[in-house]
Design a protein around this nucleic acid. Sequence first.
DNA 1: CAGTATCCTCTGAGATACTG
DNA 2: CAGTATCTCAGAGGATACTG
Lengths: 124, 124
Amino acid sequence: MTREQQVLFAADCPHRLLLDPIADKWSVLILGALCEQPLRFNTLKRQLEGITQKALTQSLRRLQRNGIVSRTVIATSPVAVEYQITPLGHTLKEPFEALYNWTVKSLPEVEKARHEFDVNGVGE
Amino acid sequence: MTREQQVLFAADCPHRLLLDPIADKWSVLILGALCEQPLRFNTLKRQLEGITQKALTQSLRRLQRNGIVSRTVIATSPVAVEYQITPLGHTLKEPFEALYNWTVKSLPEVEKARHEFDVNGVGE
DNA sequence: CAGTATCCTCTGAGATACTG
DNA sequence: CAGTATCTCAGAGGATACTG
């Protein structure tokens, strides 16, 4: 193993750990929505069909803490809260898209492999 | 939201779902190890400090089913089983590295944001 | 050696109700 | 509107024992 890869794949590497709170299912979807435009809590919730209030709050807090989104309270009545992607958060778009492009390109081959496996089993 | 992004971030998109069984913690580490050279079950286990037999077996099966690694039984006594990355699996290296490079570049700014958040709270 | 099989724990996701 | 507080419950994951 090269030195580069030892670092790249070390389990406790702080760089890799950084992805854990950012790359989970809901966070990626939130990022996608906010990349387009700032959104308020309930608008966001409506856009992410299936997310619970609790999950949305938790994800937003995590993203905010990591500097990926910002939270702005607008003192109307009732209060409004706007979430917005930060410049740092915006730089995530490119690597995420690279990964997404891989899935688009590879899905047919993966599906072929799955079918093969499901028919032939683990192989002896 | 552009059409492209609606696709990119749709929760039930089969392309995105493809990442779930591949991009989890152990799978990435296994991929990293196998990228260098084929390895046998217990060698792999020793290299991934902290993984249980169960988790390793499960991850390897999942990766095999998705066409990312291949499994070869060598009929010695006792039996040997060699795991090897497939050409398809190898193409994952590049997008994964792009993401890793992002973490390296962004960690300082993220740490600054975390500190800020932990001191000032959510902000009102 | 390379796994299966079982049991057990314990987090964490979801549903529900409440509030400034 | 934008959350917090509580409860419950399934299931992921660990520890242990067994096997071709």
